[in-house]
Every structure is written in C-alpha cells, then in structure tokens.
C-alpha cells in the first residue's frame, strides 16, 4: 500500500469502529425488550398497507389461505366500493384509489368471507 492508502484505511476503520456500534445502539435503544413481542414491526403482520397519495400499496408477507383474494375499496360510509384488484401471493401490490377511499377490504369471493378490513 502507498502512504495515502494506509491513511485512508486508518480513517475508514476508525469510522467503522465509531459509527457502526453507535447506529446499532441508537437503533435498539427504543425497543422494549420486556414486552413479549420485541420486534413488533410491519413484517410480522401477514399484510401491511400504506396509502401513498393516489395509490394504495399492499405488502403481502404471508399469503392468504383462500383460493382467491379480492381487494375492494372502502367508501366513506364504510360500505364496499369497487374492486381494486386481486392478491395472489407474497409481494407488493399497488392499486390506484380515489380520494373518497377510506380503507380497503380483502374478501374471499368464493366463500364470501371478509379476510381483512383496514381503514387508513
């Protein structure tokens, strides 16, 4: 190594030594380890839903057991609106929604069972 590279290595390792443990501690300091579920984050849920402006994003972490899962929009009065689309397995699904949409329903159309109801 030339002198410059030796110097760069020195600073990089000092940086790693200071920064990484700091980030790790900052990341976990707010966690409540006494709680039964220490992680409690979105990926533990079978489905996580987020509204991003004009579209709703549904992340399916654990697939539904139903043969078919349709997504309906929830209207302002809580009733089912139009079909937004279908969920098929793990992955992220984006569906366009209108401003009137208050939430979503996931329904098994064959057994006519409501699998999930979520308000934004």
């Amino acid at each position: 190594m030339i002198a410059g590279q030796r110097r760069a290595h020195k600073y990089i390792w000092i940086g790693i030594l200071v920064l990484l443990p700091m980030l790790m501690i900052l990341a976990v300091k707010d966690l409540d380890f006494s709680a039964a579920d220490a992680s409690g984050t979105s990926t533990d849920l079978p489905v996580s839903v987020s509204l991003n402006g004009q579209s709703v994003s549904i992340q399916v972490n654990t697939p539904f057991k139903s043969t078919s899962s349709l997504v309906y929009e929830m209207l302002a009065d809580g009733s089912k609106g139009a079909v937004l689309g279908q969920l098929e397995g793990r992955g992220t699904y984006d569906f366009p929604v209108s401003e009137a949409t208050k939430g979503i329903y996931v329904v098994d159309p064959i057994k006519d069972v409501e699998l999930l109801k979520m308000e934004f």
Partner: peptide, 28 residues
C-alpha cells in the same frame, strides 16, 4: 423472489417500497 416477485409491482421497486419506514432507525 420469495418476498417481492409475486406482486404486481416490479420486484426491485418492491424492495424499496414495501417498507417505507425510512425515517425510523430500528424499522428502517
């Protein structure tokens, strides 16, 4: 493939958008 391929969005986009908690350290 396991976590992002079956949705209707591009799997790579899904890697970046499936969890939007960019402001959090522990849930980043």
């Amino acid at each position: 493939i396991q976590f992002h391929a079956l949705g209707n969005s591009n799997p790579i986009v899904s890697v970046f958008t499936s969890n939007m908690d960019y402001g959090s350290l522990v849930n980043f």
